[in-house]
Design a protein around this nucleic acid. Sequence first.
DNA 1: ATTCGCTTAGAAAACGTTTTCTGAGATGGG
DNA 2: CCCATCTCAGAAAACGTTTTCTAAGCGAAT
Lengths: 336, 336
Amino acid sequence: MAIGIKDVAQVAGVSPATVSRVLAGRPVDPAMSERVLAAVKSTGYRPNLAARRLRSQHSNTIGLVVADIGNPFFTAVSRAIESVAAARGLRVILCNTDEDPAKEAAYLELLHEERVTGVILAPSRQRVARGGRSELDYPVVLIDRAAPDAEFDCVLLDNARMAEVLVEHLYAQGHRRITGLFGAASTTGAERRDGFTRAAGRLGLTVETIAVPHTKDAAEQVIAQLLSRAERPDAVVASNGVMLVNVLRALRDLGLEVPRDIALAGFDNNDWMEFVGGGLSVIEQPVEEIGRTAMTMLLDRLENPDAAGRKVVLAGRLIPRGSSMRADIRCKTTGD
Amino acid sequence: MAIGIKDVAQVAGVSPATVSRVLAGRPVDPAMSERVLAAVKSTGYRPNLAARRLRSQHSNTIGLVVADIGNPFFTAVSRAIESVAAARGLRVILCNTDEDPAKEAAYLELLHEERVTGVILAPSRQRVARGGRSELDYPVVLIDRAAPDAEFDCVLLDNARMAEVLVEHLYAQGHRRITGLFGAASTTGAERRDGFTRAAGRLGLTVETIAVPHTKDAAEQVIAQLLSRAERPDAVVASNGVMLVNVLRALRDLGLEVPRDIALAGFDNNDWMEFVGGGLSVIEQPVEEIGRTAMTMLLDRLENPDAAGRKVVLAGRLIPRGSSMRADIRCKTTGD
DNA sequence: ATTCGCTTAGAAAACGTTTTCTGAGATGGG
DNA sequence: CCCATCTCAGAAAACGTTTTCTAAGCGAAT
């Protein structure tokens, strides 16, 4: 019932092959080309992508697998990826794993079934979940989190360096007792912790780092315990957005305020961060560039599949906010 | 090179048709079935979705077109949609239009080329952009924003009622000079404005509503002008998240604080809203239910395509926050 | 002028499945 | 016991494209 390339061919009085060639931009007689285009328009013909992909053996599609679509970092990166993909005539299939390795494996399988050209992946684990297969069937570029070995191309933030910047910033603001909260599972967390301790050592600070467990309850408990200690830190660095919100919640429950009672800094800039307390200092990731770079690496990899794995490390940018800027509105509580 | 159904058939010593039947769960001899399954496992066979879709003429895929993937409301709804779709064996193609009608039309075309079973759409405009076609080729369910006519099925928040609730809440908190900011273009904005004025009328308040233009600069200007008036409102209702952030920014620039100087309320709950000032009162949408309902309506529509258009209106939930809860920490500025 | 490319368009094959068709064997009823 | 019916598996067709193959036409070179 639906109209196909044969119908167009008939209307234009040419062969289906010619219609295909016109649509693909291959050289055909201008007069014919015109007739074909007119026929396409008059019939409202839309090619069947399934047929096209089956025959041509390439999907012109890449997969983008992210750990959390609700995370603004990933949405921003995926926007960037999508726009450069579109410019190259590639479609993007966006998959959300919710940090679940099983879903990740399932999506990776699905993308194979779709015969995608390649995949950009923000892995939910240190090891990429393969779903029982030993080999992935397409090139993969990792973003945000690296595989421990150099198996895959990847583009990462310079986590260690940026954590150093954060510590230096807090130091400059006058803070001396700084505690760092880092994810227990991810390479990203480990790198940031390393930078954190290195900078602290250089500045002569004795700092504390805490590996925060991934489960919600345990994380809340650890944080509440930290903040209600007698010798409470005067600044906290949170390695990711979830932790940062957890800290904020714990602070509010304890009746503490940022930046009056404690400073708080972290990674990933969100538009609301300038409004809580005196503002949160954060490291902003170059999301646009991460996306562009990942896409470029993937395209390179497609061109020569056997090149050595590459690792691109990008610098972030400190967005300084907090006590020093808003000293004018610091105040004491009236009650309690 | 890649292994196909014929290879599996050969390994199992059966015909391709039999392999297909086993995989589809159709009745075959148990012994054969077992051999086939073993062959599938040993060969690592993965079906080619393009071929399957081409032959079977259904994609088992629905499209989900949202206006802003960065908006937590849409990510939450899409999660819900995806989980019920997965339970029915349907894939979801997620498309982000960035509120651009041209992109919307392009995606709607693309989804047709993919031969999707149906589409769930959060339209960027009042009229659904069809990209020049007079008819869409698949059933469509609208979410979040309605088409003005009853042309499509849709599931919506009870916007007018929820706006009333917000006004009543602010009134109960003691606010009397309330200004409402509403999107100039969307039906959603109009409905919320109607509820707003209705509730205000019932309470005997003379309120002001402002239709905020869609462009960033104009919006900022309107808001700044409103807040720096001599007779500043003591409460503001923002119809959407973007406006809400704009208001917060303007307030900060003017040195005003929530809730000390002004109350602020809006729609869509975000996890950070409890931390700014004394907290923002908002209407939380039943995202889970919206997603489920939209999906159900789409499936119903597929079963009987000629039924009358349906419109489901869901209630939201007020999350009361703000001055009354945090009166204990109100304070005066020390400097300035 | 004849032959050798070279270009161009139509005919037909091919892509990897599912589904229809066909035939063989089993089953049951007359 | 034979024929009709039913079940099940293999053969082959079909899905809608792209691409290869083929042939025709044309220009240039010998």
